[in-house]
Every structure is written in structure tokens, then in C-alpha cells.
Nucleic acid binder design. Structure first.
Lengths: 210, 210
DNA sequence: TAGATAAACGACCGGTCGTTCATATACTCT
DNA sequence: AGAGTATATGAACGACCGGTCGTTTATCTA
């Protein structure tokens, strides 16, 4: 129980499979992704999945959780190194844009792909994705509320409204930069949030001018 | 040649099929849509499609054009009844949000679904969707430039930047309202653009306060 | 009225989908 | 050494995929 090489190997397999699944799902979605292609990309057999997951849906659910962990490590954690307030909010936005620009995922954003796929399709996957989005938005709202309470955002700012705007402005960068081959999309996304935060802050000098 | 009931019937069939295809594609995408389900939804046989289109891709291309026409009729044309300037820009935004709120398409937005599906998949469909997006953004930019030249927007406004922001803020309303069952999403989208336009206009009183 | 043509159909093709199952291997525990 | 278990495989399944084929029905033309 304490030292089982099989479990360790199994866990490594699971991690490798989920990572690849999230990568492919960022391109073709979680349902568009087929087990055959996933197996081919990993060089394993299709039936091997069912040693780890009961069916495709269970794998999809775990893939969502894996993507949440990746998002936390690569966007939230780095942003928390910035001082609380508007600088942390903007650091969060920049971490996200860097995640897109660095092409960490071949499709750009797992959550964009999966959200448009499942927003109108009932089931457990939808609920899991929905919860991930709620948690993420609640986190952004909390950062906004922090910024208000430490006086770096005007007291009349609505955290809900600001979180919506940051989410919208950040995410369009994915499809715009790809579909239109428009490099300026990321710059538009950056400037939009920067100018918005500066306009809402009593001390804009906390943020870069441009 | 001038009066052929067969051609007329064929054209009506094509229109009905494309309308249904756009509806279904707004939910599951243009590739996720299967000819079998499309035929079932229309109560016709699968093989009948190939009397009108060579293959699925040709139908997809026509569906994109059909969706562009629908978008023009239901969003652009109504907005053009508003006077040129910031009021027309905001009318465009409101027409779009009404299109979403009225659930004209069961999936909310054909172009959101198709864009996330094809932004990283080469082919003719991608090019067609890309062109549709470019044309749409160019139209929004033109309205913004008009507003600047008639003095209703500050001269230092960047039409590219404004078009990006309006697009981003408008479109997130689709998935947010659906995935999160959040009715406020549309209101967030409306207020974000309204306050943005008011902030950029020398005469905010042209627009509603809230 | 006879022939041509557009529209729609049912049957069927090869291929891929998610899934099941019997089996083999690798490892731990008793 | 032997039982038990986690991991992985290849073969096979029924369902559905996009697409082809020959045929029928409806309509126009000569």
C-alpha cells in the first residue's frame, strides 16, 4: 500500500493522458476529441483508457479538473506575486495573455473551447465547467474587492461588472489572434484592461502608462 | 426557364435547410452538426442533400453566407435607423444583445460557435468565417470613424481598439448567460459598452445614463 | 403526349465512433 | 511460491458518420 509501483505508473499515465486530452480539447473540444485520436497522439491503445476511466465522460470530467489545475498554476499563482490591488488585477490579466501568446495549449484556451461546446448541452461536464467558471469569476471579483478596500479602485466600482469586462476582453484575444491572424488582438486586450483599470483607480500611476 | 416550379421548390428547400443548419450549428458547430440529425430535424432524407450540395463542406460554406445575411438583416439594418455617431454604435450593440436575448438561434450565436470551432483548423470554411469576421469588424470600425468625424467621439479614439472592445463585451454575454444561467451577463455587456462610449464622447448626453 | 430535368428517396458502402471482453503482463502482499 | 490486483492489449461489437447509387415523383418543354 505504501509503495506500489503499479499505482505510481498508473498515476503517471493518467497525468500524461489528461495533459494530452486538455491539449487536444483546446483545439477540437472535449466531445470533438475522439479516444482513437487521443490514443494515437499518446502512442497507446484505445482500450487502455478503460483501465483508468469508466467511460469517456469520466475522462472529460477529470480533464476539466486538470485544466483548472494548470490554469491555477500558470495564471493565478504568478499573479499572486504582485502586490494586492490594481497591480495584482493587471498581473492576472497579463499572465493570461502570456499564457495565450506562449501557445501553452495548441488551441489557445481549453475553457473557451469547452465553454462554447457545453454551454447549451446538459450533463455533468457542463456542470463541472460551469463550476470552474464560477470559481474563476469569484476569484477575480475577490481581487477587485481587495483593490477597492485598499483604496486602489474607486469605491463605486462594481466587482461583478469589472470581472465580466476583464473576462470578455481577455478571452476574445484567443480567437481573434488565430482566426484573423491579427497580432494586435493581444495588444488590444492588454490596453483595454489597462486603460479601464487606470480610469477606475484614484492612483493610475500604480500601473504602466501604456 | 423563366417560370420553373421545380427550381422555385428547390430554392425554398435550400433556404429551409440552411436556416435549420445555422440553427443547429449555433449549438453544436458546423462540423459537429451531422447530416443525419439535420435531415431528421427537417423530416427529409439524408441523401437529398446531395441534390443541392456536392458535399458537407459546400453546405457549410453556404450556411456561413446564410448566417451573414441573417446577421445583416437583424443587427445591421435595424441599427442603421439610428442617427450616425455614438447612438448608431450603441444601437448596433443593443441590436446584438436583443438578438441573443430573443433566442433567435437556439445556440445563441452562430459565429461564436463556428469561430471557436474553426479558428485553428485550416480549410475553406475557416477562410469564409474569417472573411465574415473581418467584414463585420470593418463595419464597426467604419461606424466608429463616422462618430469621430462628426464629433461624437473624441479624436484620439482608436476605431480598431473600440471595435475589439465592443466585440469582446458583446459576445461573452452568450456563453455567460447560458453556462452560468446569469441573467446579469447581458446587462453587464450593455452597461460596459454604454459607459465606454459615454466616457469617449464629448457629449455623453446623446446616450442614456444607464 | 413524349422526352428531359430537378428534387427527393431508400438501400447501401467503407470508415470511425465509444465500448466490451478475454487475455497477458507487471507488481505487491501473504 | 501463490494469490490478488493494477495496467495494458487486440479483437470485436453496434451505432452512426459522410457519401454513392439507382430509382421514383413532379414539373417543364417540344
Amino acid at each position: 500500500m505504501t509503495h506500489d509501483g503499479r499505482l505510481l505508473r498508473g498515476q503517471r499515465s493518467r497525468e500524461a493522458i489528461l495533459g494530452q486530452a486538455v491539449s487536444l480539447a483546446s483545439v477540437e473540444g472535449l466531445d470533438g476529441l475522439s479516444l482513437g485520436r487521443l490514443a494515437a497522439a499518446l502512442g497507446i491503445s484505445k482500450s487502455g483508457f478503460f483501465a483508468h476511466w469508466r467511460d469517456k465522460e469520466q475522462l472529460q470530467l477529470d480533464a476539466v479538473d486538470w485544466a483548472v489545475r494548470q490554469w491555477t498554476e500558470q495564471i493565478i499563482t504568478p499573479a499572486l506575486r504582485a502586490p494586492a490591488g490594481v497591480r495584482r488585477l493587471f498581473a492576472l490579466h497579463e499572465a493570461r495573455l502570456r499564457f495565450y501568446a506562449d501557445r501553452v495549449l495548441p488551441g489557445g484556451c481549453f475553457f473557451l473551447a469547452v465553454r462554447t461546446e457545453f454551454d447549451d448541452r446538459p450533463g455533468e461536464v457542463r456542470e463541472r465547467v460551469s463550476k470552474a467558471m464560477r470559481d474563476w469569476l469569484a476569484f477575480v471579483r475577490r481581487l477587485a474587492a481587495e483593490a477597492i478596500s485598499c483604496g486602489e479602485l474607486r469605491a463605486d466600482v462594481d466587482p461583478d461588472q469589472l470581472a465580466y469586462e476583464m473576462e470578455a476582453l481577455g478571452e476574445l484575444a484567443v480567437t481573434h489572434s488565430r482566426l484573423l491572424d491579427d497580432q494586435r488582438a493581444v495588444e488590444h486586450a492588454r490596453r483595454a484592461v489597462l486603460q479601464r483599470l487606470r480610469a477606475l483607480s484614484p492612483d493610475p500611476s500604480l500601473l504602466p502608462e501604456d
